[in-house]
């Protein structure tokens, strides 16, 4: 790790001020991805702003029939929350499948989506549920607009995710085929039947989470495995790497979509 200054703000306002005043500073939430990055000297921040003590960023509450989850809420808290289990069980199940128990005890929702790892799980839920990302600048960014590319988001450099609002879907489920080594998603499919229609978000398969519109259209016509079978997934924009070639990923998208469909009921 390179040396850096460390700040532990007690409020969001303080954190935002520190970030605005120091363009070379980086935010630290759970740190489960960022600290390994620092350890491998892949990042050289002048300062690290630890969001871990900001009470207003943490917690789960019911809002407008859906859920609002604070940015620094731990994966384990989401996974173990009776409220999440009742309102959006698919979200609890997804959180239970992130990383490993120790990582879930530290890793946060906000950290995950702000990092936007192409193989992370939460971006699939944010897009798949049509969630809204709220920020320190008072913005509410639609999930569809938030993830802009590999490790890229719509956040401005001095903007902090404060919470995510997930509307309650009619039905939803997430199915993941993990990379055997890292356990990140080789393909993860979040599928939901919402007030706004069927949404299918795919993570792991491409440089950034995306909506599988062909699957959405097919499932909107017929919520069935047969509908998924009838869709051809274009592999040309999917990742090929040592863990999976694009055509295999394309195949897995349909398999995972069917498994999510079966789980969603």
């Amino acid at each position: 790790m390179y040396a850096f200054d460390y700040h532990r703000p007690a409020s969001l306002a303080e954190a935002a001020q520190l970030l605005a005043g120091n363009p070379e500073a980086k935010l630290l939430a759970g740190g489960q991805t960022y600290i390994p990055t620092l350890k491998q000297r892949l990042a050289k921040p002048a300062a690290v702003i630890d969001l871990g003590r900001i009470a207003e960023l943490r917690g789960i509450r019911e809002e407008a029939g859906g859920l609002t989850i604070g940015a620094t809420t731990r994966h384990a808290e989401v996974a173990g929350s009776p409220l999440v289990e009742r309102v959006i069980p698919a979200l609890a199940a997804l959180a239970e499948g992130i990383g490993d128990p120790q990582v879930r005890n530290c890793g946060t929702l906000g950290g995950s989506i702000a990092n936007n790892d192409p193989a992370a799980d939460y971006p699939a839920a944010v897009v798949g549920l049509g969630a809204t990302v709220r920020t320190s600048k008072g913005r509410s960014i639609a999930g569809d607009d938030f993830f802009t590319g590999m490790f890229e988001t719509a956040l401005e450099p001095d903007e902090i995710v404060t919470a995510v609002h997930f509307p309650k879907p009619e039905k939803a489920a997430y199915a993941k085929f993990p990379n055997p080594a890292s356990r990140y998603a080789i393909v993860g499919v979040f599928l939901a039947k919402t007030a706004g229609g069927v949404r299918v978000a795919v993570t792991g398969a491409a440089p950034c989470v995306f909506r599988a519109t062909a699957l959405e259209q097919a499932l909107a016509q017929s919520w069935s495995a047969a509908a998924i079978d009838g869709v051809t997934i274009d592999a040309s924009n999917l990742n090929s790497d040592i863990h999976a070639q694009a055509d295999y990923r394309a195949h897995l998208i349909k398999v995972m979509a069917k498994r999510a469909l079966a789980a969603a009921g």
């Binding site: 055997p180 080594a181 890292s182 990140y184 040592i242 863990h243």
Partner: peptide, 11 residues
């Protein structure tokens, strides 16, 4: 080496 960590070499 493409499999240089536990992220890519499967233990």
């Amino acid at each position: 080496l493409l499999t240089g960590s536990y992220m890519d070499y499967c233990m």
